[in-house]
């Protein structure tokens, strides 16, 4: 497969697998080489939801950006679907901690932006944008200025924009970290539900163990300096997930496993 055909309109597109083999990454700094990722082997199945957790400096954001094709890696191989990572792939959606909305565009125009950059035109776009706004619960705010929205609503717009081109792979770099606890849990559960409905392959970078457990099928614990896999924990909680599961012994047990994997790794983890 060389070119990914645009997905069928309105259809729910499933994910595609991600495979990393012996990936290394070293940054060159003023004080010498700084290894950030060491021999990362990671195989994520189609439709799987994987969280990357670990202390600051463990390279989890770097890893995500490598998969997004935003930064190069030194050696090893990376495949997203059947292709090497490359920026601008429409089958890969990337969501950041900051909503990064364009203040000169309305909420609706912000969600339409990916179509404009992809030079996609046609009558299917307008209904698709309305559908996305509906999905994130912002239909009534579509004509507002993006800077008039609260932080949580801005992040919902960013989510709709990330989903706009119906990517098969969803890469999220601490997307809820700037939100307050309540909004964070609420939006996390919504994204979990969307994942359960859509089956996109998803990678979430997060500092929060409960968030990782709630949302994921699998949690990869990364140790710091250099970043390497120190734990691979399966989350055998039934889906659909719900907030009530947090109190169950199973949830607590998985959280404990993640903490133990990260024990001894420097850094603050919540």
């Amino acid at each position: 497969m060389t070119v990914t055909a645009p997905p069928a309109r309105g259809a729910i597109t499933a994910g595609e697998p991600i495979r990393l083999t012996s990936v290394n990454k070293t940054y060159t700094t003023a004080t010498g080489p700084l290894p950030v990722l060491q021999d990362i082997d990671l195989h994520i199945e189609t439709g799987e939801f994987v969280s990357l957790v670990g202390p600051s400096g463990c390279g989890k954001s770097t890893l995500l950006k490598i998969i997004a094709g935003l930064i190069p890696f030194d050696n090893g191989t990376v495949h997203v679907g059947e292709q090497a990572p490359k920026e601008g792939r429409r089958d890969v959606g990337f969501m950041l901690q900051q909503s990064v909305l364009m203040p000169w565009l309305s909420v609706r125009e912000n969600v339409t932006l990916p179509f404009a950059i992809a030079r996609e035109k046609g009558s299917h776009i307008a209904p698709r944008v309305e559908e996305l706004l509906e999905l994130v619960g912002l239909s009534h705010s579509a004509d507002m200025n993006s800077w008039e929205l609260s932080g949580g609503m801005q992040q919902r717009v960013a989510l709709a924009r990330t989903l706009a081109l119906d990517p098969r792979v969803l890469l999220m770099d601490e997307p809820f970290a700037a939100l307050d606890e309540f909004k964070r849990e609420h939006l996390g559960l919504e994204v979990t539900k969307m994942h359960e409905d859509m089956g996109k392959t998803s990678i979430l970078v997060t500092h929060s163990i409960p968030e990782a457990v709630m949302m994921s099928d699998r949690i990869i614990a990364l140790g710091a300096r250099p970043g390497r896999v120190v734990g691979d924990i399966r989350v055998d909680l039934p889906r659909p997930r719900s907030a009530a599961m947090i109190a169950t012994p199973e949830f607590q047990d998985i959280s404990r496993q993640v903490r133990e994997a990260l024990a001894g790794e420097d850094g603050s983890i919540s």
Partner: peptide, 17 residues
Amino acid sequence: DANARMLFRTYGATTSQ
């Protein structure tokens, strides 16, 4: 904003876009 530049890169925006 550096993040906005990165976002545009993820969408494969051209220099003029």
